[in-house]
């Protein structure tokens, strides 16, 4: 438990540094582009539009999913997925690529995964806002369910922190791990419920398999944010999912923090 707290304390203490680094990373990334950070919005919008064409129009997802119009359901889910996926993948190489530079600076290297998360927060809020607006325009009413988003956003940050520390540390030790994660994430995408409603596709005959798939943490977060803005459910409606999510995060956080502290001094030797 002490390990978790040690790494977490570094995140809190250096939070201003995290934000400032994130801002500069963003600026450096789009330095040569005349549209600049607008690309952070244009890219996801185009991607979402593609999925909407394929699944909403092409494959006739039907007018409604989960009792709400497909387009709003899709955009909100995609916004969350893109945020989680980008932060998750970026965090995986964040330590490996920066270890030489950062080890000479006056902050702990454990904040690098968090920097990657915070780079994506603003684009996430914008895409999410677009999704909510589309949903409202297509007939959804916002209700107090929306306040659940605060909880789910907190859950996302903790999840990304835990997985970020763990993945980034393992990637330094075994670079192959990054490739592995990349492959797995392509797979997870279809199980995350970001574009298709799995339970509905599998139908009642395979309900158990559908529910098993719904236990993955990406699904938990994506479905949770949908519940918030589409008013389709409360957090306490699915206690097993809550317990599964948080026990998973806790175990990863424990192992990740431990490995990180154990190997931190030797990162520069291993890269």
């Amino acid at each position: 438990m002490k390990e978790i707290w040690l790494v977490l304390r570094e995140q809190i203490k250096y939070f201003p540094v995290i934000l400032r680094l994130a801002r500069y990373e963003t600026r450096a990334k789009y330095m040569d582009h005349s549209l600049g950070v607008l690309w952070d919005i244009i890219n996801p919008v185009m991607q979402i539009a593609t999925y909407w064409l394929v699944f909403g129009v092409g494959l006739r997802q039907g007018g409604e999913t989960d009792g709400v119009p497909y387009i709003g359901w899709l955009v909100i889910g995609q916004a969350v997925w893109l945020f989680l996926n980008t932060s998750f993948m970026d965090a995986t190489w964040s330590i490996r690529n920066n270890v030489r530079q950062v080890s000479k600076m006056n902050f702990p290297i454990s904040i690098m995964p968090s920097v990657r998360t915070w780079i994506n927060v603003i684009p996430f809020f914008i895409t999410l806002a677009v999704g909510v607006v589309i949903a409202v325009l297509s007939g959804v009413h916002l209700t107090p369910h929306a306040f659940q988003f605060i909880y789910y956003f907190f859950a996302m940050l903790v999840f990304l922190h835990a997985l970020g520390i763990f993945n980034a540390t393992i990637t330094v030790l075994f670079p192959d791990y990054q490739q592995l994660i990349q492959t797995i994430m392509r797979f997870v995408f279809w199980f995350s419920g970001a574009v298709i409603d799995i339970a509905q596709k599998l139908g009642p005959t395979h309900a158990r398999i559908g529910r098993l798939i719904e236990m993955n943490p990406f699904y938990y977060l994506i479905a949770g944010v949908r519940d918030s803005f589409l008013s389709t459910g409360w957090v306490w409606d699915h206690p097993s999912q809550n317990i599964a999510f948080w026990s998973f995060v806790l175990v990863v956080l424990l192992l990740g923090s431990h490995l990180h502290l154990k190997f931190r001094a030797y990162f520069a030797d291993l890269v």
Binding site: M215, Q241, V251, L254, H258
Partner: peptide, 30 residues
């Protein structure tokens, strides 16, 4: 190189995994 994972942390990790598996099972079947 850092300490080993202390026994109560091992316990915690195993307990967490156990709870995770049980929760998955419970959700799947009920």
């Amino acid at each position: 190189v850092g300490g080993r994972l202390s026994w109560w942390n091992w316990l915690l990790a195993f307990a967490g995994t156990g709870i995770l598996i049980y929760a998955v099972y419970a959700y799947m079947y009920f």
